[in-house]
Computed example of a mutant assay.
Amino acid sequence: MPRYIAFYKPYGVLSQFTGEKGQRTLADFALPEKVYAAGRLDKDSEGLLLLSDDGPFIKKLLNPDNAHERVYWVEIEGEPNKAALEELSGGVVFKGYKSKPCRVSRLDPQPDIAPRDPPVRFRKSIPTCWIEIALTEGKNRQVRRMTASVGHPTLRLIRKKIGKLTLTDLVPGIWQDVKKMDIF
């Protein structure tokens, strides 16, 4: 029987089982044997990462033609106005590529999220704000490049949802088995 794992990838961990000396990887979390990450979250991001030993499932999940939704909570520098949020949602250009339209909203109320270790940079004179971005594509460091392009650099990035599956009550470094039907 194939396995499907929902894992809360902590900040600073690679989305793979091997790395350079001193790097934290998925091998540090007692995950089941023969499962592989179905997609990536960069080292500086945290949140929901799917793992499975079902090759066709992973291929389907990673195929851009399937355009499944991924939802991110993003702490940004500054407070975006309506125009910045509309620009993000309409698609922005970064590295010569224009992102597809997506859903973007300011989280209201702002979420109460446990501090990250190490902490996010803090500037007394510049407020921060949490927004939600729902994408159906996944370019390298896309969310970070998108928010920077509208003048609001990403300070913290948490993937909350892939398809129908949400992060729920998982905490950083914890995983659980899930059913395939809970993902799509």
Rank of each mutant, 00 (worst) to 15 (best):
M181A: 15
T166E: 12
S125N: 14
R70C: 05
P64R: 08
R123P: 04
G90K: 09
P10S: 00
N81E: 14
P56T: 08
T136M: 11
L49F: 02
P2W: 03
A37R: 02
L62T: 11
D169H: 01
L41A: 10
L14K: 03
Q16V: 01
R141E: 03
R103E: 15
K160I: 14
A6K: 00
D117P: 00
E46D: 05
K160C: 13
V171S: 12
L170N: 00
D112Y: 09
Q110W: 04
R144Y: 03
Y36L: 13
L165E: 08
E86G: 11
P111H: 08
Y36V: 11
R40K: 11
A37D: 04
L14I: 07
T128R: 13
V92S: 05
F17T: 03
A114V: 06
E132F: 10
K180Y: 12
S52T: 15
T25S: 10
G39D: 03
P115Y: 07
L49E: 01
V150Y: 10
I158T: 05
I158D: 02
R145N: 08
T154M: 07
E20C: 02
Q16Y: 02
V13R: 06
G39H: 06
E33A: 15
I131G: 03
K179S: 14
L107M: 14
T25K: 08
K124C: 13
K180E: 15
F7N: 00
V120T: 14
D169G: 04
E87W: 10
V171W: 02
S89R: 14
L62H: 02
P2M: 09
E33K: 14
V150Q: 09
V74S: 07
I76W: 12
K43W: 08
I162R: 05
A83T: 14
F57K: 06
D182G: 03
C129V: 07
M146N: 05
S89F: 11
Q142C: 05
L26I: 01
L26F: 03
F57T: 04
P101Q: 07
L26C: 04
C102F: 05
D65L: 12
P64N: 02
L107R: 10
I174S: 13
A27D: 09
E79Q: 15
V92D: 08
I5F: 00
E87G: 08
R144N: 04
L157R: 06
D112L: 13
V104W: 07
P118V: 06
W175T: 01
L41E: 06
F122V: 13
D54K: 00
R145C: 05
K160L: 15
R123I: 11
T18F: 07
D65Y: 10
D112S: 13
K9C: 07
I183Y: 01
P64C: 06
S105Q: 15
D28I: 00
K34D: 15
F122S: 14
D169T: 00
G19R: 00
L157F: 06
T18N: 11
D182C: 01
